[in-house]
Design a protein around this nucleic acid. Structure first.
Lengths: 266, 266
DNA sequence: GAGTCAATGATTGGATACAAAAAAGAGGAA
DNA sequence: TTCCTCTTTTTTGTATCCAATCATTGACTC
């Protein structure tokens, strides 16, 4: 009957635009983690989150569980949820995985992508160049949003839902880490050139070329992230704790492992 | 003080051995999905699950949310959770990702693995050969358990928690699909030989060799899975619906997409 | 007889209430 | 002063309750 409706948003498990309370909390908390408003180690109290968002604790708990599985949050039994922290090894791992998977996705996308998506990619690349050339306030935000859209569009074109899902989460992690990233002028220009080159590779449906450019692009981003997050000797950059937040118990220990997905020691 | 305790299980986000109600439900439902007791399309009612497990609906809902994010169940808004179904494209995607990632993990593991882990791998390989040679009842279960332990041990040795986590989920999916798999005698022997060869590669810390064997191993498994799950023309193998279960609404449609991680159509 | 519409029943999503565990703090002894 | 212990307080984890939504069934109309 109204099959059209069930065709659209509701059955979509990644209901980014869903209007229920759980999704509201999920989007809100995720956004704040990615933007850096909640730095690593921040205690996420279900009660205060529920109060500040005007919902009860039930959907908050479900949203935190989702964020935990996605790796942005750690949950300690009977102690609640904390924003995941990042070590240098974590940064390396995430970027190594992105290099491996996103270039793979790029190669598939190059073979399947249609003219509409290519046009959209070109438009996004142009908008990024405009934003980069215009030293206005909010430039970084605009660039981040456009860059995110560019990468996500490529992912959607690869036609592999699980790969897309995994990479969305890795890209989220990269964005958390890139909160403090500062691109030099040269690095910015190189990044723009990578985007242009990717569009050219897609126009020619050249999978090898597209994958290769993506690898270069991510290697460069990896270096920028490392430079902005860690000082040369490899010691950890600790985001300043905002007043009123409590550090995760046993945090210094936890850092030597990894957030959210640590394996058991034997 | 009791820092030792917080060192162990409690702060582990993948608390497989946790004793709270949510984890109990999670493990129970996950096990039934993987074992094939709940075939694709089975409706997972929060109420009946809560009743059968002796807990309330609250932890059941959280466990289902976790399984949804992990891709084993689909949640349709206001309609509840259903066990994810698998198309041939899904099988191909999962195995392609495993080939890419598990060989990568293997290469890292080969460089880091210690003598204890190698000994344990050799032991597991021997046990598998014994189990394979002994045509007793429960042989398939024993082989599945041992093989799972073998692969997971390699993953833990690679020292990359996120990669490990992602692969755990992909392996779970493979196990769901392999429920009905039947290895021929030749395929079984080849699989055993792969395990032996992997141990040899690890003993020599030869990353290229180890990664290469793992690729072969997974390609072979991919073919067996395809053969057992789908008939030659590529049409879908539908697991028999047990009496009393309701099919997911719009299921025929959903199958053309993918479970749990479908991307939005534009 | 087929199709449409409304009432009913079942099930989910969310809110609140309660019990248990952990963290924080006060107090006292060495 | 420092360390230990007991109490208080906060916060989590679970159970129960209520409202909203969806599927189903039956009656009604064309």
């Amino acid at each position: 009957m109204d099959d059209l409706r069930s065709h659209g948003a509701p059955p979509d498990p990644e209901r980014d635009a869903a209007s229920d309370a759980e999704s509201l909390v999920y989007r809100s908390v995720r956004k704040r983690i990615i933007s850096g408003e909640y730095p690593g180690g921040t205690h996420l109290s279900t009660e205060s989150l529920a109060a500040s968002l005007g919902v009860s604790r039930t959907p908050v708990r479900e949203a935190l569980r989702r964020l935990q599985v996605e790796g942005l949050v750690e949950q300690h039994a009977n102690r609640g949820a904390f924003v995941a922290s990042w070590t240098r090894d974590d940064v390396d791992e995430v970027f190594n995985l992105r290099v491996l998977l996103e270039s793979h996705a790029c190669e598939h996308a190059a073979q399947r992508i249609g003219p509409d998506a290519i046009a959209r990619l070109r438009e996004l690349a142009h908008q990024m160049e405009d934003a980069a050339a215009n030293p206005a306030a909010g430039r970084v935000d605009a660039l981040t949003t456009l860059n995110d859209a560019f990468h996500r569009l490529i992912l959607e074109e690869c036609g592999q839902p699980r790969l897309t899902h995994i990479l969305h989460r890795l890209v989220d992690m990269s964005m958390v880490m890139r909160t403090f990233a500062t691109y030099s002028k040269e690095e910015l220009l190189r990044s723009m050139e990578h985007h242009r080159e990717l569009v050219a590779a897609f126009e020619n449906h050249d999978a090898t070329w597209a994958g290769s450019v993506m690898r270069s692009h991510l290697c460069a981003a990896h270096r920028v992230t490392l430079r902005s997050q860690f000082i040369a000797d490899g010691s950890r950059h600790e985001a300043a704790e905002p007043a009123g937040t409590k550090a995760a118990p046993g945090k210094t220990r936890a850092k030597s492992g990894a957030p959210a997905t640590r394996t058991r020691r034997r």
